[in-house]
Amino acid sequence: MRNWTHYEARFGAVGGQGVVLAGAILADAAVFYENLKAVTSPQYTAQVRGGATKVDVIIDTQEILFPQTYIIDFFLAMSQRAFDRYVSDTSPDGTILIEPSLVTDYSKAPAKVYAMPIILLTKREVGKMVMTSVVALGAMVAMSKVVSEEAIRKAVLKNAPKGTEQLNLKALALGLEWGNELIKKGPIYRPSKGE
């Protein structure tokens, strides 16, 4: 059983098309394969072109009234700029996942930080860099359990361009596996308590 009725995920990066797509796939999984409500609001245009960008995915068991975020439960940061700009909305009880080659300073994190060499893994295990966001999405789902592994697998398949299905599933499996490992390994950083 899920222990939440409302869940907010934020994916931040530079450029942005990859994370925007990952957000759309997560919302798809929630709505079509988990019977939940979901909306996504991508950061819009000018900010997407080369600057820090983000997509917020809000998932709820009820109809979503306010379509923007209260407090982020899961923050994926794929760049230092996106981390610096968007991390502060993260809940102290939330989870932050970073790509450590791109986010080196996480001292301002308000929640525990996990690190996963997403880019290196994608390059080595999947071969295609466009799959980075699918790998990250897999890790996010494994860590957050916001949708089931089955649901995210179906959603990834549904959104995969023809001919790339196997590659997408491979990327997702890699992410899921690493996500589960990360939980066991634990965070690399915890904010000091009692401030």
Binding site: K37, S41, P42, P67, Q68
Partner: peptide, 10 residues
């Protein structure tokens, strides 16, 4: 408004 315009929902 812009939020309603860009909000993606099922």
């Amino acid at each position: 408004d812009e939020v309603i315009a860009h909000l993606s929902s099922g």
